[in-house]
Design a protein around this nucleic acid. Sequence first.
DNA 1: CGTCAATAGGGTAATTAGGGGT
DNA 2: TCTGTCCTAATTACCCTATTGA
Lengths: 70, 70
Amino acid sequence: MAAPTQNPERLLTPGEVATLFRVDPKTVTRWASAGRIGSIRTPGGHRRFRESEVRGLLADLTSEASNGLR
Amino acid sequence: MAAPTQNPERLLTPGEVATLFRVDPKTVTRWASAGRIGSIRTPGGHRRFRESEVRGLLADLTSEASNGLR
DNA sequence: CGTCAATAGGGTAATTAGGGGT
DNA sequence: TCTGTCCTAATTACCCTATTGA
């Protein structure tokens, strides 16, 4: 089959994002509800997050530790 | 415009739809059974999904961050 | 006709959503 | 204000075998 469905956008589950940030999945859910992070809902209501966006956010927090930029 | 013959609606397999939503193919099947997404059945019973409908649904359920700048 | 990957289906375990309270 | 935990209900993930599609 190999359908040319190009979509390199990898999505992460709340649990994955929670592991990356070392927080509870609930906290990730709150971030999404607060509009601080983009979210994609499944028809069932569960959330998925863009890996690129999560990485960007993570990188921003990392640079904050060694950089006084705010 | 080099193909004015027809406009073939691309059909996606459960596996491809599952990849787009980052879920299990079985979950996509449940969505079809629950009527949450339109499905086309092959004579053998396998399901196919319209790409336009899937992408539309995906875009509709996507929420971008209000503001990543801080 | 035969081969290989994907799908359907049923059942059970794990994850997630949402609200409430610390 | 923000986060971690408790609860229930709903959704999703993984196990299996048989059939379909290419």
